[in-house]
Design a protein around this nucleic acid. Sequence first.
DNA 1: ATTTAATATCGTAATATTGCAATTTGAAAA
DNA 2: TTTTCAAATTGCAATATTACGATATTAAAT
Lengths: 108, 108
Amino acid sequence: MGITKSDQFNDHQNKMANILKALAHPARIAIVEYLLSVDSCICGDIVNELPLAQPTVSQHLKELKNAGIIKGTIEGKGICYCVNDDIIAEIMSYFNTINKQLNFKKCC
Amino acid sequence: MGITKSDQFNDHQNKMANILKALAHPARIAIVEYLLSVDSCICGDIVNELPLAQPTVSQHLKELKNAGIIKGTIEGKGICYCVNDDIIAEIMSYFNTINKQLNFKKCC
DNA sequence: ATTTAATATCGTAATATTGCAATTTGAAAA
DNA sequence: TTTTCAAATTGCAATATTACGATATTAAAT
């Protein structure tokens, strides 16, 4: 079907899945890493950095934005992008919880 | 196209994308959380815990296994599952790096 | 050997994702 | 206002994912 039964899972599970889905593509990982590789906002330089056509990059940026992973600010002719630290903190907190639970298990 | 241009990105980017893709579905998040919710290995009880048919669950388990997120051990008639702490540590380390880089940026 | 129970695989339908050419939009510059 | 340049949107083709019924496999139990 290709259709996820989201209604069968709780909000938290759907939310985490969506956040991780936004990062589940090498181009989007590359975008995030590029944004972090420079000590400032990136204003309109992303397309040239990626081996993909402009509409494709635009689409990936949209998905990252929708998931809240990056923020974009209109800056004159172009757009200024940077990574949203809040959501990174949220992801870290999630995996921290998982890791804590793992410490109590001593099997396999 | 639906085909990812993996060859255009580096190994690390493809690897992270694949790991996160394995977790980018509420059913697979639910599986991991269920495995963690019990203080031992889970032996053949997963299908009943999920609102999905057995072949669907089996497929999700396979994807988690392929990505190295869970480990399965044949245990008599059924299979014993648990979360692979190594890969969780790897994910945490990745987001830790991201977070450190974020601390040096003070824009947006 | 047969039955039983758990999990895997196959086949298939429905939907989602990826990618890009063509086009449009939006805002600054001329 | 026209041009220009960056980014978004549209439309479409190719491939991937999700889900499940039917069936196969596997290993213990009878």
